[in-house]
């Protein structure tokens, strides 16, 4: 079948790129996150049903599924972003390196410093480029300007944005193009030095050229970070992820190595979705 072949091809290309860049294959990994029997509710409405999953360290895990399937909710449960929403509650456990993140003694601010997040719509603060990237370290108490400048430079370099903006760090971040803004948001998330990076459809609002730059970036970043990405786009999942999880109507249907999931899905629903029969 052609669609299977095309996915296989995509995955194959990725593996070639990986070996070219000497990125180690993803076989002997630890799990960074361990989620067990998570049910999530917005008020009366249940958004997640008994989801259990592990997320591998220093790898890209992609969540796919039709809109409203709970993949974003799951992502936001990992750094407790849903705490802000009135009436949101849950049961089950979410372990980050073995620690329950919903335990009463956990400081949600400390958690979010470890688990960064990038949103679908780029959300630069209406400040200068420098101040955007320096925001996280600054609120965490970093006052030393030299130290901040170093962090800003490093983060922008890691986000592959440094060369484009190094001469205009004091310009407003709103003056950047859409793709640059999104990479700025990634740099900003990296500046707090997180272990885990959550990305909620980071490329869906971007043009193809910017998308491919962001994808390259994610590819680079997985050497140091555990990345979880929600995407609409199955090709994108195939291009960049090592693991793929398929959500449907609040249930985790299937999670497997990306290649396996796209070529030999175990569940009927997964197959229907990736072959385009619905969603």
């Amino acid at each position: 079948m052609t669609f299977m072949q095309s996915f296989t091809e995509l995955v194959h290309q990725r593996q070639q790129r990986e070996s070219a860049k000497r990125i180690r294959p993803v076989e002997t990994e630890f799990s960074k996150l361990d989620v067990r029997n998570l049910n999530f509710f917005y008020g009366e409405k249940q958004a997640l049903f008994d989801v259990s999953m592990t997320v591998a360290e220093r790898a890209v895990t992609a969540f796919i599924g039709p809109s409203g399937c709970g993949k974003s909710t799951f992502l936001r449960a990992i750094n407790r972003m849903n705490d802000i929403i009135e009436g949101a509650h849950h049961n089950g456990t979410v372990l980050l390196e073995g620690q329950e993140i919903y335990a009463p003694d956990v400081d949600v601010v400390a958690l979010r410093k470890r688990v960064g997040m990038v949103f679908q719509k780029s959300t630069p603060f209406p400040k200068s480029i420098f101040d955007n990237v320096a925001y996280g370290p600054k609120v965490a108490g970093q006052r030393n300007h030299k130290g901040l400048a170093e962090i800003v430079e490093q983060s922008l370099k890691r986000a592959a944005l440094w060369d484009e903006v190094k001469d205009r760090l004091q310009d407003s971040a709103l003056a950047l193009s859409g793709g640059q803004q999104q990479r700025l948001c990634i740099a900003r998330a990296l500046a707090t030095n997180p272990d885990v990076l959550l990305m909620d459809e980071p490329a869906s609002a971007l043009d193809p050229a910017s998308t491919s730059r962001v994808e390259d970036l994610i590819f680079e970043l997985k050497q140091n970070y555990t990345i979880v990405i929600v995407t609409h786009n199955m090709q994108q999942a195939a291009r960049i992820s090592d693991w793929t999880a398929f959500f449907y109507q609040g249930y985790l249907i299937e999670k497997d190595h990306t290649q396996k999931l796209f070529t030999t899905p175990k569940k009927k629903q997964t197959e229907d979705y990736i072959t385009g029969r619905f969603g």
Binding site: E97, I101, D105, V106, D107, V109, A110, V139, D195
Partner: peptide, 17 residues
Amino acid sequence: MSVPTKLQEPHLARRHR
């Protein structure tokens, strides 16, 4: 990143105050 993640940071207390 083998540094263990700490989710209870004492210096955060000041910020919360």
